[in-house]
Write a protein that binds this DNA or RNA. Sequence first.
DNA 1: CAGGTTTATGCGTTTTTGTGCAGGAATTTT
DNA 2: AAAATTCCTGCACAAAAACGCATAAACCTG
Lengths: 249, 249
Amino acid sequence: MLKKERQAYILHQVNLHNKVLSSSLCTEINVSEDTIRRDLQELATEGKVIKVHGGALSHSFNQVYFSTNGVYSQNQKKVIAQKAISLISNGMFILTSGGTTILEMARSLPPQLKATFISGSIPAILEYMHHPNIEVIVIGDKISKNSKITIGSEAIAKIKEVKADICFLGTNAIDIEHGITDNDWEVVQLKKAMIESSKMVVCLSIAEKVNSVQPIKVCDLKEIDMLITELPANDPLLKPYCDAGLRVV
Amino acid sequence: MLKKERQAYILHQVNLHNKVLSSSLCTEINVSEDTIRRDLQELATEGKVIKVHGGALSHSFNQVYFSTNGVYSQNQKKVIAQKAISLISNGMFILTSGGTTILEMARSLPPQLKATFISGSIPAILEYMHHPNIEVIVIGDKISKNSKITIGSEAIAKIKEVKADICFLGTNAIDIEHGITDNDWEVVQLKKAMIESSKMVVCLSIAEKVNSVQPIKVCDLKEIDMLITELPANDPLLKPYCDAGLRVV
DNA sequence: CAGGTTTATGCGTTTTTGTGCAGGAATTTT
DNA sequence: AAAATTCCTGCACAAAAACGCATAAACCTG
């Protein structure tokens, strides 16, 4: 096999699988590992692949995983925020959790909207506070510095006193089998209370989090009414959730 | 699995869920915990994640915007803040109102101080939240957008439930004859409750506000224990307050 | 086409890198 | 204060890379 031919093959494999191991290549093509390494070296200096210890990675690999922009997946979250906002009408009482998706929604609220937002998330409260026509009710209690949200029995008791029109949950993981799950026990307690205190529960989740699971369970799918992602409602990824009875937007 | 690949996966997880545990990662990827820790270490030095005991946090999540410029008489307020801080010792429960002077104090708290701060002022809470060793208790209720503080009967009821060691009041006007006065009825109600709920009441006031009067009365001079201004304690302006029985610092 | 030159490849040795493990220190939780 | 995690440090070991060298094929070139 010619050198050029071999390199073309390698490049093809890299682009196909996003990664190659030099060890597997050298048995495939039946040349020594040195040769493979030299090929990868060349392809790397030409910028065709990214060489790493043990093999090489495709360029798209890096693009996918190493997001350099500030908030992760911000554009998707903007789309979600817009969909969520379309559910809100004047005069509503709205409970919200924390999280960057909720924050994005808070920032995008139309200025003429008049509604009452109830939350214990300090960053979210900050955003609501800047809005000219929104009433903000703060859920008080001890602050969890990790999640920047008030947590504890007081907070839960206060949430149980309200009956909101909509509850928007920033979702950490959602899965057909395990429902909504999260990774912070205190926050989960809070979300449970919020779900109970709302006529309608809306989950906001970027598509990447759909079909993922976290250690602590918040609730079953049947307890939530609507799922909002950045994908169109008819995306096949969301089909199972439609079938499970959720309104998917 | 290649090292880079693994790190990309980890980063992805961190960005998705805002937090990862090294223990769960190491079972997911099936490598030793040391390897995970080394990966997190690397990602942390590259600034991609924030490493903490037991795992890592997403960077984008932790940044809460706050502006510090444009505060009136900031230098005087820094002096006042320092004097106020000298009153605080470890383990204390401290009630604070809002206002820029209180904010300046919040920013200047020494990092090793361990205390519990109770407040309904959102800007103050933000500052306390950034502090490594301070517990923050939020007084919940409706937010007053003018004063950026929670107001209402709920807030007052919650304040009455505590007995703080010190209460720091950002003061709007103080006068020998009329005592502490202010211009927002709701805020005044709150301050009254705070005064009642504290063993010691400390007024922070820039000298400019000394001997001025506002429409609504908070309390008489005899209800406060200490007055802090940027002036030295023996300044003639403060003499009448000394004579009235206040500790002037 | 003979002889020199370049290019491509493989081999053995030495370095470097990646990983896991053991212990003791540090930190968190109870 | 005690118990349980998590972290760090040094070490061992294996895999991979780097380097120098040898060989041979390919390719000039007069």
